[in-house]
Design a binder for these strands. Structure first.
Length: 261
DNA sequence: ATTGTGGCCTGCCCGC
DNA sequence: TGCGGGCAGGCCACAA
C-alpha cells in the first residue's frame, strides 16, 4: 500500500469533501467490503449523510459522517489509490502503472453537486469497512513517543523490522519506510526487537518521526535515500558498501552491513 | 500471546 | 510478439 504517508495525502484529498452530502454509494465489489458487511449495508449506512471530517490512524483512513451511524473506514492495500473527480494526488504508486481503468474502481462516493470520490485498486487488496476497530492498532508511527516505542518492542524476540511492520504494535510503517528508517537510524533490521537499549530506542523513535516528515515533504514513501539502491548490486548511499538483500518479516529487505548494527 | 508461513488478488516487467 | 516466472509500498487465516 500506500504507507502512512500516502494515506495522509489521501486524507487531505478526502478532506475536500467535508461539508458535502453523500447522494449515492457505489459498491460494485462485495469482496471489497470488509468486516462482515455487505455492499447494501454500506449503502444503507452512508447514503444521505454529510461528511463532517476525516482522520487517519496508521494506514487507515476514516471518514466521519453527520448524524447517527457508523464511521466509514478505508484501507488501500498495496495498490489502492484515492481519486477525487478524476484527480489523483498520487498519480503513480511504486510497482504500479499510472493507468486508471474503470474496472479497477472498487468503491465510490457520489456527492450532491457532482463530485465523486473513489477508490481504484487493481489488486483488490484494500477495502472499506464500517466502524473499523482501531483498538487493535498500535500508536501512530508519525507521532510515536519513546515510551510507546519501548512498549512496542518490549519482550519481543522477533526481528526489529518485523515488529515495526506489525500494525498491532506500531501503526503506519510499511516495507519501504521501515528500511529507510532503520538505515537512517543505523540499526540492523534483523536484531531481536527487545535487544535495543534505551539510547537506541530513543534514536529509533526520533528517526521514525523524522523520516516520515522528511519523506512526506519530498512526496512519498518511495523518496527515501535508500530507494534508488533497492536492487541487487545496490550500494549504501552513505558509505558505498554493497547492500545486503534479505527476507525479514516476510518482506524483501535492504540494509547496509557496514553501518547498520 | 508470539512468531513464521502461506495465501489472497492482479498487474507489470524482464528474459527467453 | 508471446509467454512464463518472479516480483510487488499489505494483510489475514492458520499452525506450532
Amino acid at each position: 500500500m500506500p504507507e502512512l504517508i500516502e494515506v495522509e495525502v489521501y486524507r487531505e484529498l478526502a478532506d475536500r469533501v467535508v461539508g458535502a452530502s453523500v447522494e449515492e454509494v457505489v459498491a460494485p465489489d462485495a469482496w471489497f467490503v470488509k468486516g462482515g458487511a455487505r455492499p447494501a449495508d454500506v449503502v444503507a449506512a452512508v447514503e444521505g449523510r454529510t461528511v463532517v471530517g476525516t482522520r487517519r490512524h496508521g494506514k487507515r483512513l476514516l471518514v466521519d459522517l453527520a448524524g447517527e451511524g457508523p464511521v466509514l473506514g478505508m484501507r488501500f492495500g498495496m495498490t489502492g489509490r484515492l481519486v477525487l473527480d478524476d484527480e489523483a494526488p498520487i498519480g503513480r504508486l511504486e510497482y504500479s502503472s499510472g493507468r486508471d481503468l474503470p474496472a479497477w474502481d472498487r468503491f465510490e462516493l457520489r456527492f450532491a453537486g457532482g463530485s465523486i470520490l473513489r477508490v481504484s485498486d487493481p489488486r483488490r487488496l484494500g477495502g472499506v469497512e464500517l466502524d473499523p476497530d482501531l483498538s487493535v492498532l498500535g500508536p501512530d508511527a508519525w507521532s510515536i513517543t519513546l515510551g510507546e516505542l519501548v512498549e512496542a518492542l518490549r519482550n519481543s524476540r522477533a526481528p526489529l523490522k518485523a515488529r515495526l511492520l506489525d500494525q498491532h504494535h506500531v501503526a503506519g510503517l510499511g516495507n519501504l519506510l521501515v528500511d529507510e528508517t532503520l538505515w537512517r537510524a543505523s540499526l540492523d533490521p534483523a536484531r531481536p526487537a527487545a535487544d535495543l537499549d534505551r539510547d537506541e530506542c530513543r534514536r529509533l523513535a526520533r528517526r521514525i518521526r523524522s523520516t516520515i516528515t522528511t519523506l512526506y515533504r519530498r512526496g512519498g514513501s518511495h523518496t527515501g535515500d535508500l530507494q534508488v539502491e533497492r536492487h541487487r548490486d545496490g550500494r549504501c548511499p552513505s558509505d558505498g558498501a554493497p547492500l545486503e538483500r534479505r527476507t525479514i518479516g516476510g518482506r524483501t529487505t535492504y540494509s547496509c552491513p557496514v553501518h547498520q548494527r
